[in-house]
Amino acid sequence: MRRATGLATAAVAALAWGEWLNWRWSRVLVGDRAGTSTAVVVLGYRNPRPTANLINRWRVRAGLRSVTDTDADVDAGETRVIFSGGENGAGGTEAQLMADYARSVLAFDGTVVLEDRSTTTWENITNVIPLIEDVDRIKIVSQPAHALKARAYLRRQRPDLAAKLVRAEDYRVGEWLLVKPLLALYGLWTLRVLESDERTVSS
Protein backbone atom coordinates (compact mmCIF):
# COMPACT_ATOMS: atom_id res chain seq x y z
CA MET A 1 0.00 0.00 0.00
CA ARG A 2 2.76 2.40 0.97
CA ARG A 3 4.65 1.56 -2.21
CA ALA A 4 1.58 2.26 -4.36
CA THR A 5 1.01 5.55 -2.54
CA GLY A 6 4.64 6.51 -3.03
CA LEU A 7 4.50 5.74 -6.73
CA ALA A 8 1.29 7.73 -7.12
CA THR A 9 2.83 10.68 -5.27
CA ALA A 10 5.93 10.54 -7.44
CA ALA A 11 3.80 10.42 -10.59
CA VAL A 12 1.76 13.45 -9.53
CA ALA A 13 4.95 15.32 -8.64
CA ALA A 14 6.48 14.53 -12.04
CA LEU A 15 3.36 15.74 -13.85
CA ALA A 16 3.27 18.93 -11.78
CA TRP A 17 6.97 19.55 -12.41
CA GLY A 18 6.56 19.08 -16.16
CA GLU A 19 3.53 21.36 -16.20
CA TRP A 20 5.29 24.09 -14.21
CA LEU A 21 8.49 24.03 -16.27
CA ASN A 22 6.64 24.26 -19.58
CA TRP A 23 4.51 27.10 -18.17
CA ARG A 24 7.64 28.91 -17.05
CA TRP A 25 9.41 28.57 -20.40
CA SER A 26 6.38 30.03 -22.18
CA ARG A 27 6.89 33.26 -20.21
CA VAL A 28 10.60 33.82 -20.81
CA LEU A 29 11.87 36.54 -23.16
CA VAL A 30 8.41 37.92 -23.93
CA GLY A 31 6.68 41.19 -23.13
CA ASP A 32 3.26 42.76 -23.55
CA ARG A 33 4.05 45.10 -26.42
CA ALA A 34 1.06 46.74 -28.10
CA GLY A 35 0.71 47.37 -31.82
CA THR A 36 -1.45 47.03 -34.90
CA SER A 37 0.34 44.19 -36.70
CA THR A 38 1.55 40.76 -35.60
CA ALA A 39 3.65 37.97 -37.09
CA VAL A 40 2.99 34.46 -35.80
CA VAL A 41 6.01 32.29 -36.64
CA VAL A 42 5.29 28.55 -36.54
CA LEU A 43 8.42 26.41 -36.45
CA GLY A 44 8.38 23.09 -38.28
CA TYR A 45 9.40 19.68 -36.98
CA ARG A 46 11.12 16.99 -39.04
CA ASN A 47 8.44 15.41 -41.17
CA PRO A 48 9.65 12.75 -43.69
CA ARG A 49 6.19 12.02 -45.03
CA PRO A 50 3.83 13.69 -47.53
CA THR A 51 1.38 14.94 -44.89
CA ALA A 52 1.87 16.87 -41.65
CA ASN A 53 2.71 14.64 -38.69
CA LEU A 54 1.26 14.83 -35.18
CA ILE A 55 3.70 17.42 -33.88
CA ASN A 56 3.42 19.70 -36.90
CA ARG A 57 -0.38 19.46 -36.81
CA TRP A 58 -0.34 20.52 -33.16
CA ARG A 59 2.05 23.40 -33.89
CA VAL A 60 -0.24 24.62 -36.66
CA ARG A 61 -3.24 24.56 -34.32
CA ALA A 62 -1.25 26.42 -31.66
CA GLY A 63 -0.20 28.95 -34.28
CA LEU A 64 -3.75 29.57 -35.44
CA ARG A 65 -5.08 29.95 -31.92
CA SER A 66 -2.27 32.47 -31.39
CA VAL A 67 -3.91 34.48 -34.18
CA THR A 68 -7.43 34.29 -32.78
CA ASP A 69 -6.18 35.05 -29.27
CA THR A 70 -4.49 38.26 -30.45
CA ASP A 71 -5.10 41.19 -28.12
CA ALA A 72 -8.13 43.33 -28.82
CA ASP A 73 -6.01 46.28 -29.98
CA VAL A 74 -4.58 44.24 -32.86
CA ASP A 75 -6.68 43.64 -35.96
CA ALA A 76 -6.48 39.93 -36.86
CA GLY A 77 -6.47 41.04 -40.49
CA GLU A 78 -3.04 42.53 -39.91
CA THR A 79 -1.68 39.26 -38.57
CA ARG A 80 0.44 37.06 -40.82
CA VAL A 81 1.23 33.43 -40.09
CA ILE A 82 4.71 32.38 -41.16
CA PHE A 83 5.35 28.65 -41.48
CA SER A 84 9.07 27.96 -41.26
CA GLY A 85 10.76 24.69 -42.22
CA GLY A 86 12.82 23.31 -45.09
CA GLU A 87 12.84 20.05 -47.04
CA ASN A 88 11.12 17.15 -45.36
CA GLY A 89 12.67 14.28 -47.31
CA ALA A 90 9.43 13.46 -49.09
CA GLY A 91 9.74 15.91 -51.96
CA GLY A 92 8.22 18.85 -50.11
CA THR A 93 8.94 21.20 -47.22
CA GLU A 94 7.76 21.37 -43.62
CA ALA A 95 6.47 24.88 -44.27
CA GLN A 96 4.29 23.77 -47.15
CA LEU A 97 2.91 20.77 -45.26
CA MET A 98 1.91 22.98 -42.35
CA ALA A 99 0.36 25.56 -44.65
CA ASP A 100 -1.60 22.85 -46.48
CA TYR A 101 -2.91 21.52 -43.17
CA ALA A 102 -3.90 25.01 -42.02
CA ARG A 103 -5.76 25.71 -45.27
CA SER A 104 -7.34 22.37 -46.18
CA VAL A 105 -8.07 20.87 -42.76
CA LEU A 106 -8.43 23.84 -40.41
CA ALA A 107 -9.93 26.15 -43.07
CA PHE A 108 -7.63 29.03 -42.19
CA ASP A 109 -8.17 31.89 -44.63
CA GLY A 110 -5.80 34.46 -43.20
CA THR A 111 -2.45 35.66 -44.52
CA VAL A 112 0.13 32.87 -44.84
CA VAL A 113 3.82 33.25 -45.68
CA LEU A 114 6.23 30.35 -46.25
CA GLU A 115 9.87 30.20 -45.23
CA ASP A 116 10.99 26.90 -46.75
CA ARG A 117 14.80 26.83 -46.55
CA SER A 118 15.58 26.27 -42.88
CA THR A 119 16.91 23.01 -41.46
CA THR A 120 17.86 24.20 -37.93
CA THR A 121 16.31 26.49 -35.33
CA TRP A 122 19.06 29.06 -35.89
CA GLU A 123 18.26 29.05 -39.61
CA ASN A 124 14.54 29.35 -38.85
CA ILE A 125 15.22 32.63 -37.11
CA THR A 126 17.77 33.90 -39.63
CA ASN A 127 15.45 33.25 -42.55
CA VAL A 128 12.27 34.69 -41.04
CA ILE A 129 13.89 37.97 -40.02
CA PRO A 130 13.15 39.67 -43.38
CA LEU A 131 9.52 38.57 -42.99
CA ILE A 132 8.99 40.06 -39.52
CA GLU A 133 10.93 43.31 -39.58
CA ASP A 134 7.90 45.49 -40.32
CA VAL A 135 5.47 44.19 -37.66
CA ASP A 136 4.81 45.53 -34.17
CA ARG A 137 4.55 42.20 -32.37
CA ILE A 138 6.13 38.77 -32.89
CA LYS A 139 4.91 35.41 -31.59
CA ILE A 140 7.03 32.27 -31.99
CA VAL A 141 5.12 28.99 -31.80
CA SER A 142 6.48 25.54 -30.92
CA GLN A 143 6.74 23.38 -27.83
CA PRO A 144 7.60 25.84 -25.01
CA ALA A 145 11.30 24.90 -24.68
CA HIS A 146 11.87 25.02 -28.43
CA ALA A 147 10.02 28.33 -28.74
CA LEU A 148 12.18 29.78 -25.95
CA LYS A 149 15.33 28.64 -27.73
CA ALA A 150 14.11 30.36 -30.90
CA ARG A 151 13.33 33.57 -29.00
CA ALA A 152 16.83 33.52 -27.52
CA TYR A 153 18.28 33.11 -31.01
CA LEU A 154 16.26 36.09 -32.23
CA ARG A 155 17.59 38.09 -29.28
CA ARG A 156 21.14 37.18 -30.28
CA GLN A 157 20.67 37.97 -33.95
CA ARG A 158 18.36 40.97 -33.76
CA PRO A 159 17.78 42.35 -30.26
CA ASP A 160 15.68 45.15 -31.73
CA LEU A 161 13.21 42.60 -33.07
CA ALA A 162 13.37 40.53 -29.89
CA ALA A 163 11.95 43.55 -28.08
CA LYS A 164 8.73 42.91 -30.05
CA LEU A 165 8.27 39.35 -28.74
CA VAL A 166 4.97 38.57 -27.02
CA ARG A 167 3.47 35.32 -25.74
CA ALA A 168 2.01 32.82 -28.16
CA GLU A 169 -0.73 30.34 -27.29
CA ASP A 170 1.57 27.31 -27.37
CA TYR A 171 1.11 26.53 -23.68
CA ARG A 172 -2.17 25.45 -22.13
CA VAL A 173 -2.71 23.84 -18.75
CA GLY A 174 -3.20 20.10 -19.08
CA GLU A 175 -2.32 19.91 -22.77
CA TRP A 176 0.19 17.12 -23.46
CA LEU A 177 -0.05 16.48 -19.70
CA LEU A 178 1.28 12.91 -19.64
CA VAL A 179 4.30 13.70 -21.81
CA LYS A 180 5.15 17.07 -20.27
CA PRO A 181 7.70 15.54 -17.87
CA LEU A 182 9.50 14.06 -20.90
CA LEU A 183 9.22 17.37 -22.76
CA ALA A 184 10.65 19.08 -19.68
CA LEU A 185 13.63 16.71 -19.50
CA TYR A 186 14.31 17.12 -23.21
CA GLY A 187 13.88 20.88 -22.88
CA LEU A 188 16.44 21.09 -20.09
CA TRP A 189 18.90 19.28 -22.34
CA THR A 190 18.26 21.45 -25.41
CA LEU A 191 18.27 24.71 -23.44
CA ARG A 192 21.70 24.08 -21.95
CA VAL A 193 23.06 26.30 -24.76
CA LEU A 194 21.30 29.37 -23.35
CA GLU A 195 22.93 31.99 -21.15
CA SER A 196 21.57 32.72 -17.68
CA ASP A 197 20.00 36.02 -18.77
CA GLU A 198 18.16 34.16 -21.55
CA ARG A 199 16.37 32.01 -18.97
CA THR A 200 14.84 34.85 -16.94
CA VAL A 201 11.06 35.03 -16.78
CA SER A 202 9.82 38.30 -18.24
CA SER A 203 8.16 40.70 -15.85
Rank of each mutant, 00 (worst) to 15 (best):
A34T: 14
A16G: 11
A168Q: 05
S37F: 14
M98N: 07
A102E: 00
E19S: 12
L188E: 05
R137E: 10
D170V: 03
R156D: 06
V166S: 03
I138A: 00
L7R: 12
F108G: 04
W17E: 03
A14S: 13
A145N: 10
G89T: 02
R61S: 13
N124E: 05
R192Y: 03
A8H: 01
D136Q: 08
R156M: 07
V173N: 08
K164Y: 00
A184M: 05
L194Y: 04
R156V: 03
L54V: 00
I55P: 10
V30I: 11
W23L: 09
R46A: 15
V201I: 11
A8G: 01
L7M: 12
V166Q: 06
L131H: 11
W176Q: 13
K164L: 06
T36Y: 00
T79A: 10
R27K: 14
E94P: 06
P130C: 09
S203F: 02
T36A: 11
D71C: 10
K180R: 15
D69I: 04
T119V: 13
A34R: 11
L29W: 01
E169V: 07
A14H: 07
R192Q: 15
Y45T: 10
I138M: 01
S84H: 04
V173P: 00
D75K: 05
R192F: 09
P50M: 13
R61K: 14
P144H: 00
D116Q: 14
G187I: 09
G92Y: 06
P144W: 00
L7A: 14
E198P: 09
G86I: 02
L64E: 06
I138L: 00
V113M: 10
T9V: 15
R80P: 00
P48W: 13
K164G: 02
A72R: 14
Q157G: 09
T190P: 01
A150M: 05
A34F: 01
V193L: 01
I82Q: 02
A99S: 15
A11K: 10
R3S: 15
T9H: 09
T70R: 14
L106F: 01
G110V: 14
V173K: 05
G187A: 04
I125A: 08
R65G: 07
V201P: 07
S202Y: 04
A145P: 03
Y171M: 10
R33H: 07
D134K: 14
G187S: 10
D75R: 14
K139F: 04
K149M: 11
H146K: 11
V173A: 13
V193E: 13
I82Y: 06
L106D: 03
T68L: 12
Y153A: 02
D134G: 07
A34H: 07
T68Q: 13
E19C: 10
G174Q: 11
R57P: 07
T9W: 08
R65P: 01
A107S: 13
S142P: 13
V81K: 11
V179L: 12
P159V: 10
N124L: 05
N124P: 12
K164C: 00
A107C: 05
M1W: 01
K149L: 14
N47A: 08
R156S: 06
A162I: 04
R156Y: 02
E78S: 14
A150F: 09
V60W: 04
E175T: 06
A99I: 02
A52F: 08
G89V: 05
Y153L: 14
A145E: 09
R57M: 15
L54G: 04
S202E: 09
T51N: 03
R80G: 02
